[in-house]
Design a protein around this nucleic acid. Structure first.
Lengths: 285, 285
DNA sequence: CTATGGTCTCCCCCAAGGGGAGAGTCAAGT
DNA sequence: ACTTGACTCTCCCCTTGGGGGAGACCATAG
């Protein structure tokens, strides 16, 4: 019967010497012989089998204590079935937890990347553009502008994992109101589950004026002023609700510097004249 | 500005007192005030924000050291993007590892459950039954019966994650040979990838005699003898190759007790005479 | 003034090993 | 027989993210 020193045994089994000694100490792997004078460990082929079994169970993420229990109390694979099933549940739970983290990370990364490309191609000028229809979930409320954060949070909870872009507000008032403004806080969504589906609706696209406001929200009045001037100069007719998209605001981790906040203001333009498809107002809910 | 004792702060943030002290010690969470005489910690609302950020990053599985680095060196979410991306890769790796374990566990559980049902409905009697076509991957070899283990391992490696049942041998010799037997060691497979596809082939089904042999392989000769007697009595003609299905042999963890090994022997029966579809018996089990 | 409950620091514990120090051992070459 | 270099031994400390508990202060209400 071949006997191996711990180094040879380590090379055979792929376990580190430290690990082998640990398994010995914990009673998982008893060397075939321990020299009673030198304390040198010597292993045989049966030990190799045991080591392989341990390595296999460790791959299956069993804790050492459980490995020992299995190895010491059973002699047949079938008897270990309950352990396997317990372990399977445990691993599924861990996978779910990690998947949740991965999903969150994914969302964060996507959002921050969008912000970065936004920042790069930023020109703080009024543009006319076409925007498409969007499926959204929103929360309608009345109050002061500064309460927006709370309601965005509300909308985020309603949308759960379906959020597909930056939050925005819809302003249903035609004019600026300090108090008691009529606002809907929304998220664009997609891939909704059944029960979320009824809370969502489609926000129609169309032609709009767009201006990206850079800086704190307190100064957003100036950007609105520029937009209204432009509207008047071109003779366009504005449609409510107007939209304020919070491309970059207080972050998830940091509040950030308000000087770098980015908010896109979109004012939908009513079709010019005559056209029978004259929608004055997108209210549907 | 509201100030909270550590207990209140713990209730607000959901972090345990121990955890808060740890974060303080590691420099992640500096209390707004530490009484210089009593060493009591007092926290304010800004601390609540920080604690929330820490909890969020911990949910994303960031280690504390990284959380501290992020919190101490950055002020904007976008700057943290590289950390997020690194973390995403790390989490994916962990998920992959766990998924591998889960897949292995799944296979083991399925196999052992099959063995258990086998054991329950075991009657060690000769039966005639129809078996269906099977897609298999096999390794053909010549040598001694006892080398089977090695070649089954070979076949397992070839089949990878597509294995769908117990391993078996095909015996191409008409008679029992001690040495230099002509054998193919196989696994039933399904869900093959492209590159595995060409190694697989279909093993045709048909009518066969089946006997489940219980006990060590060394005694399998007796079971063969019973089968051959039955064949002769019925006047059936046997077809090669015959099959030996290792329902329960040495396990993955334990070698197990050879007295409990289960091996199903299947001998295909050649169609009787003339009639190309002559079923004599409705048994289909 | 005391009782009760909060809080402090300090120390030990978990899992699954890794790193290294200092001492002892083995086998081969000289 | 001696040396040398490679192994191996035990013992201790370190990691992560906290948990448990001891013994000593602290705060506040009755």
């Amino acid at each position: 019967m071949a006997m191996y020193t711990i180094g040879q045994f380590s090379r055979i089994t792929g376990l580190s010497i430290k690990t082998i000694r640990l398994y010995h100490e914990k009673g998982l792997l008893r060397p075939a012989l321990v020299d009673e004078f030198t304390n040198y460990r010597y292993f045989n082929d049966h030990n190799v089998d045991t080591a392989r079994a341990i390595a296999y169970l460790r791959e299956l993420q069993f804790p050492l204590a459980e490995v020992q229990e299995i190895l010491s109390e059973f002699r047949e694979d079938t008897e270990v079935l309950p352990f396997f099933e317990k372990q399977q549940k445990l691993i599924q739970a861990r996978i779910n937890q990690l998947n949740q983290a991965a999903t969150s990370l994914d969302g964060v990364i996507r959002r921050e990347k969008e912000v970065l490309t936004m920042l790069r191609q930023l020109e703080s000028d009024i543009r006319e553009k076409e925007i498409g229809d969007q499926t959204i979930i929103g929360v309608r409320w009345k109050g002061k502008y500064s309460e927006t954060g709370k309601w965005i949070g509300q909308a985020a909870r309603q949308s759960g994992r379906s959020i597909r872009g930056a939050p925005f507000n819809l302003y249903y008032d035609c004019e600026y109101k300090e108090e008691d403004a009529d606002i809907e806080s929304c998220f664009p969504v997609s891939g909704l589950t059944e029960k979320h589906h009824q809370k969502a609706r489609v926000l129609p696209g169309g032609r709009c004026l767009s201006l990206i406001h850079k800086g704190p929200y307190e100064q957003i009045g100036l950007s609105y002023q520029r937009l209204f001037e432009y509207l008047q100069k071109k003779g366009y007719r504005a449609q409510t609700p107007s939209r304020e998209i919070y491309l970059k605001g207080p972050g998830i981790i940091f509040r950030g510097n308000p000087k770098n906040y980015l908010t896109e203001i979109q004012i939908m333009i009513a079709p010019q004249n005559g056209g029978q498809d004259e929608r004055q107002d997108g209210r549907q809910d």
